[in-house]
Amino acid sequence: QIFVKTLTGKTITLEVEPSDTIENVKAKIQDKEGIPPDQQRLIFAGKQLEDGRTLSDYNIQKESTLHLVL
């Protein structure tokens, strides 16, 4: 699982696999929060994550925290 922290300070927990794409993660966030993926920007280690890449591409491991910017 990974954590996604929103600007409001809320933390969302997501069940993911390293092979999941960023697009996939955004879809999971939409399921939980109702935020359309095209409004979501995910930041990890100061980098904006691209939809077509996977979590493992960015070396995002379990218990990692991503930041969600709208």
Rank of each mutant, 00 (worst) to 15 (best):
Q1S: 10
Q1A: 09
Q1V: 15
Q1W: 15
I2N: 01
F3G: 02
F3D: 03
V4Q: 00
V4Y: 02
V4I: 13
V4C: 04
V4F: 03
V4P: 00
K5W: 06
K5E: 07
K5A: 07
T6K: 05
T6R: 06
L7Q: 14
L7C: 15
L7S: 14
T8V: 08
T8H: 13
G9K: 04
G9H: 05
G9S: 04
G9P: 02
G9I: 02
T11F: 09
T11E: 05
T11A: 05
I12P: 00
I12F: 12
I12R: 02
I12A: 02
T13G: 05
T13Y: 08
T13K: 08
L14M: 04
L14D: 01
L14F: 05
E15A: 11
E17V: 10
E17T: 10
E17L: 11
P18Q: 08
S19V: 06
S19L: 09
D20A: 07
T21N: 04
T21F: 08
T21W: 05
I22V: 10
I22P: 02
E23W: 14
N24E: 12
N24V: 14
V25M: 05
V25Q: 00
V25K: 00
K26G: 01
K26R: 05
K26Y: 03
K26F: 03
K26E: 01
A27T: 11
A27Y: 14
K28P: 00
K28A: 07
K28Y: 07
I29N: 00
I29L: 07
Q30D: 05
Q30I: 03
D31Q: 15
D31F: 12
D31K: 12
K32I: 13
K32T: 08
K32P: 02
E33T: 14
G34A: 05
G34E: 04
G34R: 06
I35R: 02
I35L: 06
P36M: 06
P36N: 07
P36Q: 06
P37Y: 12
P37E: 07
D38G: 11
D38Q: 11
D38R: 11
D38N: 11
Q39M: 12
Q39F: 09
Q40I: 11
Q40N: 03
R41K: 10
R41P: 01
L42P: 00
L42V: 03
L42C: 01
I43H: 11
A45P: 01
A45M: 14
G46L: 03
G46Q: 05
K47E: 12
K47P: 01
K47I: 13
Q48D: 12
L49W: 01
E50Y: 07
D51E: 09
G52D: 10
R53S: 07
R53F: 14
R53V: 07
R53T: 06
R53M: 12
T54C: 08
T54W: 04
T54I: 06
L55N: 00
L55G: 00
S56K: 13
D57R: 02
Y58N: 02
Y58E: 03
N59W: 05
N59S: 08
I60H: 01
I60M: 03
Q61H: 11
Q61D: 09
Q61M: 10
K62R: 09
K62H: 15
K62P: 15
K62G: 14
K62V: 12
K62M: 15
K62L: 13
K62A: 15
E63C: 15
E63I: 04
S64I: 05
S64Y: 09
T65M: 09
T65R: 05
T65C: 09
T65A: 04
L66W: 02
H67Q: 10
H67M: 13
H67I: 13
L68R: 00
L68Y: 02
L68K: 00
V69N: 06
V69L: 13
V69R: 11
L70W: 10
L70G: 09
